[in-house]
Design a protein around this nucleic acid. Structure first.
Lengths: 225, 225
DNA sequence: TAATATTATGAACACTGTTCAGACCTGGAC
DNA sequence: GTCCAGGTCTGAACAGTGTTCATAATATTA
C-alpha cells in the first residue's frame, strides 16, 4: 500500500523542482526578475500548476529564504569550525562569515536580511525557525565571551549581537546596492566595522537598550549576569 | 518675447506636478506600489504624457531621490544646528539625524540608501551631487573631531564616516524590514550602535581600510595626518 | 491664413501575478 | 470491466505593469 507514499514523493519532487528552478533564476537574474512564468517554463509546467504547490509567489520566496538559512547555518555549519578558537576570535570569525555570505550568496542574503518586498518574510520573521536559531546561536557565542571576561558583564548579549549585526548588515547593504565609491574595499570596511564594534563593546561604554522583551527561546537572557 | 520662457515655466510646472504626485503616492503607498498610471491619474494626464518629461520610471525615481537629499541636507539643513556643539556631540547629533530621517521619511531613506531596484541610483550614485556633498560634509565633521583630538589621528576620516554610517544603516534597514523582534527598540539600538562605534573609534584599534581611491572632491584625504 | 513645432492621447505590445472551469489521469469500489 | 471520486494540470482570461508610436490637438511662427 505504498501508493500514497509514492504520490507524496512525486509531489515533493515537483515541489523541489519548482524551488530549484526558482533558486537558479533568482541567483542568476536576481529576485526582481524571477516570474512565475519563467519558473514554469523551466520545469515545463504551466504557470497555473505552481499554484498547486505554493499559494503565492510570496510563499515561494519564503521557502527560498528558509533554504538560505539552511545554507548559512545547516551542516556543514558556518559556525561549527570556529568552535576551537578562543572566544573573541570565535565571534570575529562567525560574524565575518555573515559578511562573506553576503558576498558568496548576495541574492540569498538580500532575501533573508535586506529585502522589503516579500511581505511574508517581514511579517513572519519571528516565526522563522532558522532566524531564531541563528540568533540564539550567535547570542550564545557573545554570552561565552562575557563569561570568559572578554566583554564586560554590563553588555547584554542580545545587544552586542545586534550591534555587531547592524554594522555588517550596513556594509553588506552598501556593497550590494553599489553605494560605495570606486576604490573603497567593502571587505576591509567590514573588518574595520567588526573590529571597531568589538573594541567599542569592550570599552565598557554605557548601553541604552534594555533586554526587556528579548525572548530567545533556548537562550534566556541573563542581564548583567 | 517671453513665450519661450512661459513655455519653459509651464513645462517645469507639469514636471513638478508629476514629481509631487509621485512623491505623495510613494510616501503613502511605498515605492513598489507607485505606477505610472496612478501618477498620471492623479494629475489627470494620460500615462504616455509622463514620458515627455521623464525618459523612464527609473529617472523619475532618480529625481525623487535627489529631492530626498535636498530634504535631508537642504535648508534648514539637518547639520547646521549642530555647529555650536562640541565636536563629539556634534557628530553624535549629526549621525543621529540620519537615523531620525529613516524614521521620519522611511520611503525616502530606503530610496536613497537601501533600495536596489532603481538601477540608475545604484549606477550613478557617485555622480549624485547631493550624495557626494553629504559625504564631504560628514567627513569634514569627523576630521574636525580628529583635529580636536577626540579621535586618534590614525583614524582616516572617511573610514570613520563609513563605520558610523554602516551601523546606523544596518539598524534602519532592520527596522524598515521588520527584522527586529517585538520589544526591541530600534531607537535605543541606534543610539547604542552610535556610542559603541564612537567608543571603538576612540579606542585606537588598528584599521584595515586604506583611503586610496577615496576622492572626496572638496575634502582631500589626509591619511594619518 | 498656412505651415510648423510642441505636446497629449488612445491603442497597442509584451510582460506580470493570479483565478477558474474544464480536461485528464489515477486509484479504489462494485 | 465499469463507474465514480480525487487530485493534478492546462488554457484562457482578468486586471495590472512599463513602454512605444502613430495620430490628433494645440499653440507658435511666418
Amino acid at each position: 500500500m505504498g501508493i500514497k507514499e509514492r504520490q507524496g514523493r512525486d509531489r515533493e519532487a515537483v515541489r523541489r523542482a519548482i524551488l530549484d528552478a526558482a533558486r537558479d533564476l533568482f541567483v542568476s537574474e536576481g529576485f526582481q526578475n524571477v516570474s512565475i512564468r519563467k519558473i514554469a517554463d523551466r520545469i515545463e509546467y504551466s504557470p497555473a500548476a505552481l499554484y498547486g504547490y505554493f499559494p503565492s509567489k510570496d510563499d515561494l520566496f519564503f521557502a527560498l529564504a528558509e533554504e538560505g538559512f539552511r545554507l548559512l547555518f545547516g551542516k556543514p555549519s558556518s559556525v561549527e569550525p570556529a568552535q576551537a578558537l578562543p572566544p573573541l576570535e570565535r565571534i570575529r570569525t562567525i560574524f565575518w562569515r555573515l559578511y562573506q555570505f553576503s558576498c558568496d550568496h548576495p541574492q540569498y542574503f538580500a532575501l533573508m536580511f535586506l529585502d522589503r518586498s516579500v511581505p511574508r518574510i517581514n511579517r513572519e520573521y519571528e516565526r522563522f525557525a532558522f532566524a531564531r536559531e541563528m540568533r540564539a546561536l550567535l547570542v550564545a557565542q557573545v554570552q561565552h565571551c562575557i563569561d570568559e571576561g572578554v566583554f564586560p558583564s554590563t553588555v547584554p548579549p542580545m545587544v552586542a549581537f545586534r550591534v555587531l549585526t547592524s554594522g555588517l548588515l550596513g556594509v553588506a547593504s552598501m556593497r550590494l546596492s553599489d553605494r560605495l565609491a570606486p576604490g573603497e574595499n567593502a571587505g576591509d570596511l567590514a573588518r574595520d566595522v567588526l573590529d571597531v564594534s568589538i573594541a567599542g563593546l569592550q570599552s565598557g561604554v554605557a548601553l541604552r537598550s534594555t533586554t526587556t522583551g528579548y525572548s530567545v527561546d533556548e537562550e534566556p537572557n541573563v542581564q548583567a549576569s
